[in-house]
Simulated scan of single mutants.
Amino acid sequence: MRMNGTSTKLVPAAGLGAWTGLLPESAENHGWRMRLMPALLIFALWTVVGLFQAVPDMLDGFRWTETIGKFIDAWAWALLTPAILLIDRKLTSRLQNVVRIAVAHLGLSIPFSLAHTYLTGLILYPMPDIWWSPLRSTEFAIYFYLGGWGTYAAIVGVLQTFKYYNRFMGSQVELARVEKNLVESHLNALRLQLEPHFLFNTLNAISSELAANPVLAREMIEDLAALLRQSLDCQGSREITLAQELALLDHYLAIQKLRFGERIDICVEVDPATHSAMVPSMFLQPLVENAIRHGLEGRMSGGKVVVSAAQVGAALHIAVIDDGVGLPRQWTIETCAGLGIGVTRERLQTLYPEPGDHDFRVARREGGGTEVAIRIPLHRMGAEARGVES
């Protein structure tokens, strides 16, 4: 084609793509590249081995014959390495026993050492300056054979080391997965201990109001249904956000406020910045229930329960405080803790097993009542929140 005195040559699309690189690479070329990568890697590794062999001889002066001889010795092994890898893979799949594999490789070391000796000799033979070629001297043939036998043993040793390391790492991953499943099962079992206990106490409270005040009992049942619905939504989660945990607690507190009326004052003082912090699911409810049942329920004047949460450094501090009757004189957490305290303590130990990761204390207050103080690691839901935290 000619335009305004200038000729323009039409180039096929394939040729244009080859020159400009603008067209996508064909699947066939990509396949060839993937096949060449292992070969290039093997060649590069043996080149490095040849370099390490040649460097000591270079210290007293560079001689090209000695240097090229070391590289050719290594490159001969590069040519044999694919066959060694293939045979080792077949032996591993068939024998499945380290002793049998070792015996098989011991037998194979003879032909492979001979093959390396003759292959190296053939490559070196056209170079008359390299007089130590195994095809020129019987003594050097024995030297090359023994050196090749040691190299073959080293190759097999490295292969077995990598294989057993991979198996070990695979078994560690599988072990971690099994341990995680066991922890999940243990946490679910602990939670299942709490739920029947909580349901029995709540239903018992509702039944006591059913005859005297059916409207109040109906409202308590509605709050219980909402609490159970949200609890089922979180059942598969080891941890939920503090906001979700407070939403669950709100339904339980609504039941208690309907039941006790003005006798009990419940105050929730939580820093909004901690709402995205992850906490064990349904762990506040048994602590508040303990404060009400054992601290305030028996008092005609009732009392107050305060639930607080705040960030302190890299930890989340949570407290449940009441001004009730307090703990008995001989009370200890090891011997006298009820189901709610005991299960909560065990859940924290399971979720945060590292020393110093958490703290759980139950203590008497100076002015009367009980304080439950919890410290757990502060981590938030989502990568963005974790970035803010760090």
Rank of each mutant, 00 (worst) to 15 (best):
S7T: 08
K9V: 15
A13L: 09
A14T: 15
G15V: 15
P24L: 09
E25I: 15
S26G: 12
A27H: 09
H30L: 15
W32Y: 07
R35K: 13
M37P: 08
F43W: 15
V49C: 09
D60C: 03
F62E: 07
T67M: 07
T67P: 01
G69C: 00
W75M: 01
A76N: 04
W77Q: 03
A78S: 01
T81L: 01
L86A: 02
I87M: 10
L95G: 00
N97S: 09
N97H: 12
V98E: 15
V99C: 07
A102M: 03
S109E: 01
I110D: 09
F112H: 04
G121T: 03
I123N: 05
Y125P: 00
F144K: 05
Y145G: 04
G147P: 04
I155S: 03
G157Y: 00
Q160M: 04
T161D: 03
F162N: 00
Y164R: 10
Y164I: 08
N166Q: 12
Q172P: 07
L175Q: 08
L175P: 07
A176Y: 03
N181G: 12
L182D: 07
H186T: 13
H186F: 10
L187A: 03
N188T: 08
L190S: 11
L194V: 04
H197K: 05
H197V: 07
H197Y: 08
L199R: 03
F200H: 09
N204P: 03
S208K: 11
A212F: 07
E222D: 14
D223K: 06
L224R: 00
L224S: 02
L227A: 06
R229L: 14
C234T: 10
G236T: 11
S237M: 10
R238Y: 08
Q244E: 04
E245F: 08
E245C: 07
L246I: 04
K257D: 04
G261Y: 05
E262N: 02
E262T: 07
I266S: 11
V268T: 11
V270E: 01
P272Q: 13
A273M: 09
M282K: 02
V288A: 02
E289P: 01
N290Q: 15
N290V: 15
I292Y: 01
G295P: 00
G295S: 02
L296Q: 05
E297I: 04
R299C: 01
V305Q: 06
A309W: 00
A309I: 01
G313D: 12
L316E: 11
I318T: 12
D323W: 00
G326Y: 08
W331K: 02
I333E: 15
E334L: 08
E334Q: 03
L339I: 10
G342A: 14
G342C: 08
V343Q: 06
T344N: 13
R345E: 12
T350Q: 14
L351Q: 03
D357C: 07
D359M: 13
F360P: 05
R361F: 08
R361A: 13
I374N: 01
P377I: 00
H379Y: 14
M381T: 09
R386F: 05
V388K: 05
S390G: 12
